[in-house]
Design a protein around this nucleic acid. Structure first.
Lengths: 123, 123
DNA sequence: CGGTATCCGAATAGATACTG
DNA sequence: CAGTATCTATTCGGATACCG
């Protein structure tokens, strides 16, 4: 069952990574992995995230079946977002990548500095 | 050592995911995980990838210390790209996410269809 | 062969104003 | 509170032309 890295098998992977790699999805998923959150609660917790982008991010996550949106018919209305089982199952692999990123971000940082310094010297 | 999902700890994760989640990086990394490749070899192997984008993708990967670029002073010149140890170590977590994506892409697909169908009914 | 430089249209994302 | 609608600034990506 050796998985060859064919072009085709990468397409869904790329789609997932594109979703999860966009500017805000991961942050939202990480927060939702703790407990359900309300809309403005998420907005307040993620600095720099505009209302528009939060809406779009949540819609996409909902569309992909990773997040549920529950409206409570209170006045004023409150809407709660939570991970689906599918969304929760994503936290494992994403967590692994996250740990890799945390562990290696110093290495990446210094690689960038070396690269930029070398590029500068060439000008 | 319980890792809290603070905002700050997510930033490097997001950067990695943004790099790896862009349109072509994963495809390039997957190919390079097999063996070193030359520039035009990569270009031919990835359908729809323009020369410009391949160059940019490779530069970014090189800058992050994930890929090496080796120029052989032949005529005509040949340039070989390969993964660094850091790049190879990324293949583990990315592979895990990839397997998740492959396993769950049917679920995501059907979630999308359900969502789109529901949205359509509302119009 | 393996790029760089430039132009231009398309897609994104932020700010702002308005609404049930 | 939780959005939608609209406008605009920026970014991104493809096409093309040129170079060592």
């Amino acid at each position: 069952m050796k998985p060859r890295h064919t072009h085709e098998s990468c397409t869904p992977v790329r789609e997932i990574l594109a979703r999860v790699g966009d500017k805000w999805s991961i942050l939202v998923i990480m927060l939702l992995s703790e407990r359900p959150w309300r809309f403005n609660e998420l907005k307040r917790s993620i600095e720099g995230l505009s209302q528009r982008m939060l809406t779009l991010t949540l819609r996409n996550l909902e569309r992909d079946g990773l997040v549920t949106r529950t409206v409570y018919p209170t006045v004023p209305p409150s809407v709660e977002y939570a991970l689906t089982p599918l969304g929760e199952s994503l936290c494992g692999p994403v967590g692994a990548l996250g740990r890799w990123a945390l562990e290696n971000s110093p290495r990446i940082d210094s690689a960038r500095h070396r690269f930029d310094a070398a590029a500068k010297r060439k000008r």
